[in-house]
Write a protein that binds this DNA or RNA. Sequence first.
DNA 1: GAGTTCTATACCTTTAAGGTATGGCTGCAA
DNA 2: TTGCAGCCATACCTTAAAGGTATAGAACTC
Lengths: 307, 307
Amino acid sequence: MELRHLRYFVAVAEEQNLTRAAARLHISQPPLSRQIRDLEKELDVSLFDRGTKSIRLTEAGRIFLIEAKSILERINASVDLVKSVAQGKRGKVHVGYAASPTVDILRHTLQIFYEDHPEIDVDLHEMSSKAMLRALREHELDVALTVSLSPRDFDGLAFEKLGAHEINVAFHQKHKFGLVNEVSLREIADQPIVTFTREEHPEAYAGLCKLLSPYTTSPNIIGEYDTAASLIAAVEARRGVALVPQTLAQIAGGRIILRPVHPTPPPLPIAIAYRQSNNSPAATMFIQVAVAAKAKLAPISGNVLTV
Amino acid sequence: MELRHLRYFVAVAEEQNLTRAAARLHISQPPLSRQIRDLEKELDVSLFDRGTKSIRLTEAGRIFLIEAKSILERINASVDLVKSVAQGKRGKVHVGYAASPTVDILRHTLQIFYEDHPEIDVDLHEMSSKAMLRALREHELDVALTVSLSPRDFDGLAFEKLGAHEINVAFHQKHKFGLVNEVSLREIADQPIVTFTREEHPEAYAGLCKLLSPYTTSPNIIGEYDTAASLIAAVEARRGVALVPQTLAQIAGGRIILRPVHPTPPPLPIAIAYRQSNNSPAATMFIQVAVAAKAKLAPISGNVLTV
DNA sequence: GAGTTCTATACCTTTAAGGTATGGCTGCAA
DNA sequence: TTGCAGCCATACCTTAAAGGTATAGAACTC
């Protein structure tokens, strides 16, 4: 059975007349006659009672008419749906993000995106930078908001810098660092340090070593954590101090203290990454919004310190 | 677009591989490749991202896969439905009936029918015998339960006698006929008479004239009514007496009195009528049940008189 | 870098959709 | 009653398009 059979059947059923139906379908009457018979033969159901001069629906035919029309309408609706997905009017985009460095950017982007594209779902996945890159390549993610890794890690992917965040030192409420307005890297190098896992966040470990290299060749890392929440908990529990993007304060909510570091380290760049080609329309829309939102975002989001 | 395109698309989408999909569809790979491109061209939507060695769904393609599978399933379900209608397992039958003479038969038939064919709807239409015959020919009814008319009226239709009902005289509660157990036709001929409309119930008028012909050439008909309910109301309102099937008592519910007539008139035959050919399976089932039910029904349903 | 594994292109074969001509039945009208 | 118009079915031909074969070309594997 093909859709042609359904279309032809509907025409004949509605016209109750093969000749008129054929005219409506812009074909001649004999092939139409045959298509209808083919359909009946395939279904093994009489759809019409035939007189020599008349053709009229059987009860089964009446039911099939309702079904056929509804199927044809369903197909039209599906085609419309798919077209709107292809045009980026509807759809779904999978976004991976690193919780701590991207809070600002993500919040801002989502606000604009939900307003401009209410029919597109955004699936948010908090994950490590390494997991994001893998997921992008596996098509499990469409977009990643992450700290800027080495260009080699972004191989085969497109990425664009969205901003940069000041690096601060985070420590316990009662730590001696709280007594000064700025902490030197030399002092930090003497402290026990907690950081993100080397395995999942290679950029964090590498960055840490690089910052402290003038003062120590082997920083005293006494704990590695896979999420921002765990790292905050570790600092709060006095395990050690941490070098983190200043935006971590927004997640920590005052449970720990952040202070600027001197000499001021280069700010931590935040990037949006995506596949170079074959992005879904919804993903393309999201990328557009994120890049546009960056322009409107303050260069570095103030100097908010938690007390 | 044809169903072939949907079937092929589903195979390719599920296999994520043209060659395997072609094997599954028992066709060779190049035509499949072309059908898929034809589909995309017609929809004006990219359903797959193509690498030289790979083919993978776009977001629109993922949506279309869901739609296409659901459409194909829907078609299967429709075919099953239509087949079950064609086999008389489901469906609808339009039954016309004359309220007063067929109460017994209809009730009995429906009881059995609903039990044997729970998936078949019975649409009941109370109407005049003339309207029933017209509706049968126009395919608005499938079956008519009616008093047996002259064979000429049944021309082109099949009919079968289901039973016969005694003719009684119906009169007001305080009418003098209440004093005797049996009323003579001669006495009735002297009374003002109400009956069914000549137009819609020709058999009733003809029967009445025939019964009274030995006693009067022009019966004193002072009212004609189109339904049993109106006739009962007229008798109750003392407009006149009526010659009616004895089963009218079941509808009147004691509001009027019915008594046998003498000399006993020939009983009123009840028949089931239907088209000679092209009946729906549901209608055929109904006819079978009605005819079978007749056998089990008491020859004439007792001698119940209202008081 | 040869071999394998895909998809795409080119071109041919075959199936079946669509067209033309016509016959036959039926119902209506003269 | 006969003739004509209307309508469906059959027979047969044409044509479009589905499907097949061969092969090129790209990319991954060993």
